[in-house]
Computed example of a mutant assay.
Amino acid sequence: MNRHIDAHTDLHTGQGALRGEHPGRAANPVVKVHDLAWLEFAKPDLDRAEAFARAFGFATALHTRDELHLRGTDPGAPCVIIRKGRRSSFLGAAFLAADDADVLRLAEATGRRATRLPETLGGIAVALTDPSGGAVRVVSGVHRLPALPTQTPLPLNVGHAVGRENATQRPAPEPARVQRLGHVVLQSTRYLETLNWYLQHLGLIVSDFQYYPGQRQRGPVMSFIRCDRGATVTDHHTVAMTLGPSNRYVHSAYQVCDLDALAAGGEYLREQGYHRSWGIGRHIQGSQIFDYWRDPDGFLVEHFSDGDMFDCSIEPGWAPMSASGLAQWGPPATRDFLDIAPGRESVRELRATITSLREDNEFDIERLLGLLKVAFS
């Protein structure tokens, strides 16, 4: 498509790019990936990880002594692969290529070698490392798990439109069944360099940029990035990337069918003793209805529903970053969600901040002041 839409009139943000600002896409990317395939983690207790996962709404595709595969109800590869490890860590993301030829093209362009994946997954992959040190795999030809029974949206009486007659509404008190993996959010000390790498190597394009208030002239510090599938719409963001004092996983998001499934599933999680980090609310960038939870290993995971879907014609929006600007409605963003609550995560981030300010990267004193202004806005 050669037509580009100014997305800043009533679509998703209040303003577009100024002259000379980042275009939000590479002119000639190596390949254009189609989607996220799965995320990989290491955890010491697979049984505990599976118990939370099932309460959150995953189904188990594989559980061995050393590996756990979690899936949604949609057909395709597992959403999450957890390997047994001595300590909990995020191992990286896998992206789905259009075909084997794109994997081979990317391998040649990066001087890497395509290899076969284990038989439990099938297909081939090329293993890469982004400028922040993050592990990235691009895969194709993986086994497609068959669809599972899913929840269906409840019939609603909306305004004067009657969708339900002579029947009550009783959402089942059960886990919100995950349909699919939606996106992952990553933090980088080399945000702009890493962003450009993803745009150039994977063909991702930016839906929205954010900048620290008063620092727009220094460029963006966060981007919501989607796959470029031409005229076919895709999620508003498949990856979100933000500047920060450490290179780390922030959260990942998994789609459920509607608000009732999300809310009833949240009640189920709460009753099982798990910790809600933030929600329920509706985001601005991406528009998703959301609910965030901490798993037993401290990883932040999100249920979402009703997210924006864009084709390649939508140009990037630009907006100032603020904690109050994270949602259209819902409770204020919590300190736990912002990683400023007292605890291991905040202590780890404080140490990373001290280290980062001594190193040669994009996170400097001015950026730190901008981040603190956002966190406490």
Rank of each mutant, 00 (worst) to 15 (best):
A167G: 10
P173F: 04
P173E: 07
E174G: 11
P175D: 03
L181T: 04
G182P: 14
V184K: 07
V184P: 08
R190S: 11
Y191V: 01
L192S: 12
T194Y: 08
L195I: 01
W197L: 02
Y198H: 15
L199N: 07
Q200F: 13
H201E: 11
G203H: 03
L204A: 06
I205L: 09
V206H: 10
D208Q: 00
Q210W: 08
Y212C: 08
P213C: 12
G214P: 03
R216D: 12
Q217D: 13
R218F: 00
P220I: 01
V221Q: 08
V221L: 08
S223M: 09
R226H: 03
D228Y: 00
V233H: 12
D235I: 05
T238P: 02
V239A: 07
T242W: 01
G244M: 04
S246F: 01
S246D: 14
S246W: 12
R248N: 13
S252G: 10
Y254E: 10
A261D: 10
L262E: 07
G266A: 07
L269Y: 02
R270M: 13
R270H: 13
Q272M: 06
G273E: 04
H275C: 12
R276Y: 08
W278M: 12
G279H: 06
G279D: 05
I280H: 15
G281Y: 09
H283K: 11
H283L: 09
I284H: 14
I284K: 15
I289Q: 13
I289V: 15
I289G: 03
F290T: 09
W293G: 00
W293I: 02
W293T: 02
G298P: 08
